[in-house]
Nucleic acid binder design. Sequence first.
DNA 1: AGCAGTGACTACCATGATGATAGGCACGGC
DNA 2: GCCGTGCCTATCATCATGGTAGTCACTGCT
Lengths: 173, 173
Amino acid sequence: MRRVDLSDAECPIARGAGELGDWWSLLILRDALDGIRRFDEFAADLPISPAMLTRRLRTLVDSGLLERRRYSEHPQRFEYVLTPRGRAAQVVVVALLAWGNDQLPPQERAVVLADRDTGREVEPVLVDAVTGTPLKDIRLAAVPGPAASEAMLDRFTTLNARRARRRRDRGAA
Amino acid sequence: MRRVDLSDAECPIARGAGELGDWWSLLILRDALDGIRRFDEFAADLPISPAMLTRRLRTLVDSGLLERRRYSEHPQRFEYVLTPRGRAAQVVVVALLAWGNDQLPPQERAVVLADRDTGREVEPVLVDAVTGTPLKDIRLAAVPGPAASEAMLDRFTTLNARRARRRRDRGAA
DNA sequence: AGCAGTGACTACCATGATGATAGGCACGGC
DNA sequence: GCCGTGCCTATCATCATGGTAGTCACTGCT
């Protein structure tokens, strides 16, 4: 599928987009998080052709999000279970859900999240881990981290220059 | 691009995957959130061909994430700025970043988030808006919401039956 | 022994998306 | 009148997608 390779991109968003940035992968991940494991279970839940499903499962296994595990010896049967990395990708799936639900009044939501133990509905928000402030209330900016390369630093220099120029232009106008 | 149409899917994850589920859209969105607006700015920042960029910008405008705005009359010049819905999609981009950074020790991160006003680093986590509990500490389940259709209810019935069966099997083994 | 059924695929193929290159077009400045 | 800039569009080979049909290794029923 990939014509452009993002797997070794420096930016984590680009890498993430490379791994999760196609709808079948996201949908399969959603199903896996819902407890679906077997080929025919995925096939029954998604409007996907078997050929496509085989391909997608393989790429997800290759990128370490799913593990192909034999659950029966005779005949050989396999199931696909989430790896820790795959389970961690729940943030992304939940973010997608939150984004979709945010635009709907509560009565119009077809899917919501709940605590499996207490049954109480859960409403996901992104906050800063340190202060607890919702990220919506912060003017957020991506900045270079400790491991940023020269090219990455240049990119941010350019971005900042552009921001400053636009501020000036608005001020002058 | 779409061979399967997810735009009117009931599940918000599927709808979201339909709109953001390809890597160029995610990357363009990232750039837009970084303040990039113009065709050639996008083109300079991404290894994308002009034809592809035109197509992607158009689909993002069509799905209401970007707005094509004229900023110069003579000659006509356009820029692409985020709509409110597009800005809201920041959750997804930030989740992608958080997922990628989570797997790296802090010194190896090339991009991090910061508060633009205070300059302090921000570490994004998903929590429940009501209790403030991090979602990682909750056994989460998707459940049908008020607007769930018959088909959606059936899907969850099947999922629950499967979960119960597996619990029994494990108990019996 | 024969046969339908299940689970998990693979082969094949038409069609459509992608990405590269090249070109267009409207203007402004020299 | 010509060059450069900004923003695209045209064309086209190649690759990915999605649909249909078939395979293969069993199991269990008759």
